[in-house]
Design a binder for these strands. Sequence first.
DNA 1: ACCGTGATTGCATACGGATGCAAAAGCCCT
DNA 2: AGGGCTTTTGCATCCGTATGCAATCACGGT
Lengths: 334, 334
Amino acid sequence: MATGGAVTARQLARQLGVSQSMVSRAFDPATSVAPAMRARILEAAAALGYRPNGIAAALTRRRSRIVGLVMGELQNPFYPAVLEQMTLALQAAGFEALLLTVPPGQQADACLPRLRQYQVDAVVLTSASLSSAGATHWLGDGRAAVLFNRTASGATPLDSVACDNAAGARLAAEALLDAGRRELVFVAGRPDTSTSQERERGFLSAFAARGLRAPRRIAAGDFSYEAGHRAALQAGNADGIFFANDILALGGMDALRHAAGRRVPQDVAVMGFDDIPMAGWPGYSLTTLRQPVAAMIEATIEILQARLEGDRQPARALRLPAALVPRGSFLPAA
Amino acid sequence: MATGGAVTARQLARQLGVSQSMVSRAFDPATSVAPAMRARILEAAAALGYRPNGIAAALTRRRSRIVGLVMGELQNPFYPAVLEQMTLALQAAGFEALLLTVPPGQQADACLPRLRQYQVDAVVLTSASLSSAGATHWLGDGRAAVLFNRTASGATPLDSVACDNAAGARLAAEALLDAGRRELVFVAGRPDTSTSQERERGFLSAFAARGLRAPRRIAAGDFSYEAGHRAALQAGNADGIFFANDILALGGMDALRHAAGRRVPQDVAVMGFDDIPMAGWPGYSLTTLRQPVAAMIEATIEILQARLEGDRQPARALRLPAALVPRGSFLPAA
DNA sequence: ACCGTGATTGCATACGGATGCAAAAGCCCT
DNA sequence: AGGGCTTTTGCATCCGTATGCAATCACGGT
């Protein structure tokens, strides 16, 4: 805290000959203060550099306006942009973001005590999840929690915001099938993630709808470049591969071209999911499905605020549509 | 804060028949409490899920144990790993990380009031900087600040931790020259960053030392893939290009290969700086200089702690050596 | 058994603001 | 001018913990 020369509300008040409460109220737009008085206080505050002590305010208000941001998978290039936009959006909504990192694939439960200790109002779990017990306990305290880019498993009572992975993956399958590709392969990522599962389900559903037999499935095991690379080497003579995300697809493309000697897209069409920045690089030019990140973040924050204001509706799983981004790694029939 | 069912020190104390102060002291390893008493309290605390309220503690202790992490350039793939390791290291040192984002190239001064309001103990500025006035004011409050991967400009009294950009860049120049490359080009990034400036200086110094005329310089203007791509297209028939960082180099390589029809490394050797994950991908296999990220983070935190404990020495600019990572985009003579 | 000394413990208060409640001040209308 | 109301304002108190100070305790030495 190091309250070096920090001016306090009392000092400001004394100097103005008013009570400390008035200073406090002047900063709360919801309370009624005579306009002249408020102006006088705010002006003096600006002059002296006074700003209410957020820590002290949190103590009495019993709300810290701090949101915990729990990130798994930071090394996936999809997330830096999310992180950046998310912190900006939180700031715009009047929150601060406390950043926690969780080893990929691990439950975020271990972070809860620390978040609780710092009286965080809410958590956004990005590619991380919470045990059902952890979630219930957390929510029971009147705190909020939203899963971002994950959906709650089973009966875990958590709100979630994600893109419609299944529908997006189905678009991918349909585009590949419409282009006449028949030897298709799905490369799965981390098996315990809702993203990988939903994308697989959506991809398969297109085959079922057309009465085609299910495509081959290769388990990459992980959402990494290396895993995609390894997986692609097992794809044999497939003429189309849909990877559960872009980073897998990039590894896969490199393997296909440099190790397997196959041409993309002539010999094999490649599609990914997320639309990370590198997907657009000319060296890859990866056809993919774009997640509506900005809209997802906006929705996340709206849910958060509603919950903090006491919304007690049952948890919702919000899904926003993914958009097909055609690029050189596979040009869908127009 | 939402202190739902949160147990307070008083409740715990009452239940144990001791005073609230004892509970407080039991959690502070520095105070002397009868071992049996401490054990009893900690045990009961664990049973009831009590943890001291960090917000309240911050208020009395006048230290929040929160560190502001100001990030510019999050879209540069060098930073996610930094961010991840930094938060983990901060956590290990008993701090929480408050994440703020700053538009690239902008001073971080605008964040200070918000950080001050939340009584942050210290700031780590990663690829962002502070005006001299802002720094002085901040430090004057008894708070700490460390620049990471930047060095303070002019008389700004800030500690900084960075890798030895000049020495690293000189290594690059020497390797290229030793391999007989003569038509060299330096591609600069954001002109107002210490990283770009120091790398340029180091690169040039090798030429001066050998009595060679300075290499050509192309200003990319920015540390982005696109900027690197554009810059490379102006490189003409250079036989070696050193880009101010990896992301520029990747854009450059793609431009050289796909747009300029030049082979890397046969026609033109390419080197970057940072060693981001993609530099190791087979499609690029970029020879680069690796920043000692782990050591840099460790040093950052040590400085932070020393300053918070009252260290008043003049600001230091710590530099850790970068290591040459030879890859396919240019194989230095052994 | 008594005193001195250092280790434990409890008491009271402070940290900086928010807020319920009651007093004070305006305001409108008759 | 006076009564009934609505705003404004000040007072007092509380949020949950840390900590200086004084009281209490345990224990060794004589």
